[in-house]
């Protein structure tokens, strides 16, 4: 990729010609609409006991009911909201942290960079889920704590990618030229580094959302999610607790998992599409 300024409109037009990207975008828009219109789409409240336990799908409850008689369709619809909000906010936060650290290391280098790289090496050997479990063990889990934990544990890949690209931008003649005419570090960062690194930030953010959604799902499935919210992971936690697999209650297990898979796949496709466009060497023939 050449270091000219990317034209946003052009980029979007190019992206839309890629099937991977458009498919991913379509999936996420679909899930997004479900999440935004949850109040309209869901026929019942996700926490209300509206029927008998473990009723198979019927016209009245199209995804059936759980062991406590809640409407699984409504729970799944509201689950989209929790999963997307946690995923997007945690990814946004981790992307901001990762970008700041990456730019800092790439611009300042030297001692700061060396220290941060050691921290990154250390964090790479951390078993994230175990750490998250240990933290949740002391703190009462809430949606906000979960977002912060996920962000704090997942900024590393972004930081590494941004750092490498910042270094390569900083090595360009135009940066030297800008310095020669008196541009300060701040101006170089906002004017040259960030615009050139932003495509990598975007695709890295898409991958962060994917990771955050899987992470939240895993925590909730282990019963360590926010107890006041119903996410897809929480539904599967209830399903396991109720022994839905022994009872053959497939309607309790299949839909929430499919939704997680679909959402994660959507963000993966978006990230892959971005990579294909921005990094032509990866393009598949």
């Amino acid at each position: 990729m050449s270091y000219e300024h990317l034209n946003v409109a052009n980029l979007i037009l190019t992206l839309l010609r890629y099937r991977t990207f458009t498919l991913g975008l379509a999936i996420i828009v679909f899930i997004g609409i479900i999440a935004a219109l949850a109040d309209t789409i869901a026929p019942y409240s996700p926490t209300e006991f509206v029927a008998g336990g473990l009723e198979p799908p019927s016209p009245k409850h199209i995804f059936g009911t759980d062991d406590m008689g809640r409407d699984l369709f409504s729970m799944t619809v509201y689950g989209a909201r929790v999963s997307l909000v946690v995923g997007l906010l945690a990814a946004l936060l981790s992307t901001v942290i990762g970008t700041s650290i990456g730019v800092l290391c790439g611009v300042v280098r030297g001692f700061v960079d060396a220290v941060v790289m050691r921290i990154i090496d250390f964090m790479l050997s951390l078993p994230y889920l175990a750490v998250a479990l240990a933290i949740v063990a002391f703190l009462k889990p809430s949606i906000w704590i979960i977002i912060v934990i996920i962000a704090a544990l997942s900024w590393i890949t972004t930081a590494k990618v941004v750092r490498t690209h910042t270094m390569s931008v900083m090595g360009n003649a135009f940066v030297e030229a800008a310095r020669a005419v008196g541009a300060g570090t701040g101006r170089i960062i906002t004017r040259y580094v960030l615009p050139n690194v932003s495509p990598m930030i975007l695709s890295s953010m898409a991958l962060n959302v994917r990771g955050a959604i899987l992470f939240e799902a895993a925590l909730s499935f282990l019963g360590l999610g926010d107890p006041s919210q119903v996410s897809w992971g929480t539904i599967l936690f209830y399903a396991r607790r109720a022994g839905a697999f022994v009872l053959g209650a497939w309607w309790y297990i299949v839909p929430p998992g499919l939704m997680i898979m679909l959402t994660v796949l959507g963000f993966t496709l978006i990230a892959t599409g971005l990579d294909e466009v921005l990094n032509p060497r990866l393009r598949t023939t």
């Binding site: 994917r210 899987l214 799902a217 895993a218 396991r240 697999f245 997680i260 679909l262």
Partner: peptide, 12 residues
Amino acid sequence: SAPIFWIGLLIL
């Protein structure tokens, strides 16, 4: 893209 615990539940 599929969460591992879900695959476990499906297999069960």
